[in-house]
Computed example of a mutant assay.
Amino acid sequence: MSTRTLYLFASAAPPVFDVARVIEDAQADGWDVCLGLTPTAARWLAESLDGLAVLTGHPVRSEYKLPGQPDAWPPADAILLAPATFNTVNAWALGITDKFVVGVVAEGIGKGIPTVTMPCVNAAYVQHPQFDRSIETLRSAGVTVLYGEGGFVPNQPGQGNPTTYPWRASLDAVLALGRGSS
């Protein structure tokens, strides 16, 4: 059995600081993990990037490659974007692909790559009318969005606890999608 490749993408929200454990959990699930970060998430994890590259066996990416450069990663069998911030969710749904992570997941829809996302937003952000539209847009495009019961439930601003972010639910959803696409 060959190893399947998971693109694990993350935005700058507090649960990103637990990404090494999530990589290890995904690897234990049988995935070859490639880590991509938004530029802010990469800045937050700057001191850990070399170690994360060693852990995954692939360079950590936060920027598009230059034209003509070979791709440093194998093709994705599945994508998990978590935590997905308010900005990332809305940019993705609106097709604003100036960030590497958002560009890959936007293209992933067209390529039919099984994709899961789990937001990490507070209750104030979700009151903005665009957020619900963005969630619906992504779901209608075939993205599994773990938001609400069984996924991420927003809390009041400043009241979040990153240790309760439901990472396992996101990895289980990716496993379920991966089984369905085999």
Rank of each mutant, 00 (worst) to 15 (best):
2 S>P: 11
6 L>Y: 11
7 Y>K: 01
9 F>D: 03
11 S>E: 04
16 V>T: 13
18 D>M: 09
18 D>R: 10
20 A>W: 09
22 V>S: 13
23 I>F: 08
24 E>V: 05
25 D>L: 12
25 D>A: 13
25 D>Y: 00
26 A>W: 04
29 D>P: 02
30 G>H: 11
32 D>K: 08
32 D>C: 01
33 V>R: 08
33 V>P: 03
34 C>L: 00
36 G>L: 03
37 L>P: 10
39 P>W: 01
39 P>L: 04
40 T>C: 07
40 T>Y: 01
41 A>Y: 00
44 W>D: 05
44 W>K: 00
45 L>Q: 08
46 A>M: 02
47 E>N: 07
47 E>G: 04
49 L>R: 11
54 V>H: 10
56 T>S: 10
58 H>M: 05
58 H>G: 08
59 P>H: 08
61 R>H: 02
65 K>G: 08
66 L>R: 15
68 G>H: 14
70 P>Q: 03
76 A>G: 01
77 D>A: 07
81 L>Y: 14
81 L>D: 06
82 A>N: 07
85 T>K: 02
86 F>L: 02
88 T>P: 12
91 A>V: 01
91 A>W: 11
92 W>N: 03
95 G>N: 11
98 D>P: 00
101 V>C: 05
102 V>A: 09
104 V>H: 06
106 A>Y: 10
106 A>N: 13
107 E>R: 13
111 K>D: 08
115 T>A: 01
117 T>H: 00
118 M>Y: 02
119 P>F: 10
120 C>K: 12
126 V>W: 15
127 Q>F: 00
127 Q>T: 12
129 P>F: 12
130 Q>N: 07
131 F>G: 13
132 D>W: 00
135 I>K: 13
137 T>A: 06
142 G>V: 07
142 G>M: 12
144 T>P: 04
145 V>F: 02
146 L>S: 08
146 L>A: 10
148 G>T: 09
148 G>F: 11
150 G>V: 12
152 F>H: 09
152 F>I: 06
153 V>Q: 15
159 Q>D: 13
159 Q>A: 15
160 G>E: 15
165 Y>E: 02
168 R>F: 03
172 D>Y: 01
175 L>C: 00
175 L>Q: 11
176 A>R: 14
177 L>H: 00
178 G>Y: 04
178 G>M: 06
178 G>W: 00
178 G>K: 02
181 S>G: 09
182 S>L: 14
182 S>A: 14
